[in-house]
Amino acid sequence: MAKEQGTKPIAQNKKARHDYHIDDTWEAGIVLVGTEVKSLRQGRASLVDGFAEVDGGEVWLHQVHIPEYTQGTWTNHASRRKRKLLLNRAEIAKIERKVSDSGYTLVPLQLYFKDGRAKVEIALAKGKKAYDKRHSLAERQANREKEQAVQRRLKGFKD
């Protein structure tokens, strides 16, 4: 059987980029059981309530929903169990130092297969205030309108 190449996205946490200022990101492997991998290969997962924490020199992923495999038997997994993330010691130490600062948290941004192995992209994030969210929405809308105006001018329309 041929080895898988490239990346295959499974789930994204779009709300995290809206709710948090993203400072730094890391790619981590995940320790999974067989039925979780089969469920992920079907493209079924949700990162909405997920977060990560450093505990005892290890990083754990909490509240990520990987539904039970439909054809699984008594060996099926719990859908919201905590899962260990695979990072090297230097990365874990750096993450632990930054998370110990006030206001920072670890959030999963996306879950994907890379060369046949399940990976998660986690980010060091700081929560946005309501006015920051409004400001980023207004900025995105202004950029969209600017791009549309440029496209209209290139096509020869008058404003």
Rank of each mutant, 00 (worst) to 15 (best):
D115E: 14
E121T: 07
F113M: 13
S102G: 11
D115H: 14
A123M: 01
V99M: 11
S100V: 04
D101N: 07
Q110L: 02
G103K: 08
V107I: 15
A125H: 02
S102K: 08
V120L: 12
Q110P: 00
R97V: 07
I122W: 08
L124V: 07
Y112R: 00
Y112M: 04
P108H: 10
Y112V: 07
F113T: 06
T105H: 11
V99E: 11
G116H: 01
R97Q: 15
L109D: 06
D115V: 03
K119N: 12
Y104E: 04
L124I: 09
L124E: 11
F113N: 04
D101T: 02
G103A: 06
P108N: 09
I122E: 05
L124F: 05
D115W: 10
D115K: 12
A125W: 01
Y104M: 05
A118Y: 05
K119L: 05
P108Y: 08
G116K: 02
A125D: 01
Y112H: 09
S100N: 09
R97F: 08
D115T: 07
K114C: 04
Y112C: 05
V120K: 10
F113A: 08
E121G: 05
I122L: 10
P108S: 03
A125P: 05
G103Q: 11
L109V: 01
L109R: 03
S100C: 07
V99R: 12
K119Y: 02
V107P: 02
F113I: 06
L109P: 01
I122P: 03
G103P: 06
Y112Q: 10
Y112A: 04
L109T: 04
T105M: 11
K119V: 06
L111T: 13
K98F: 02
V120R: 09
L106N: 11
F113H: 10
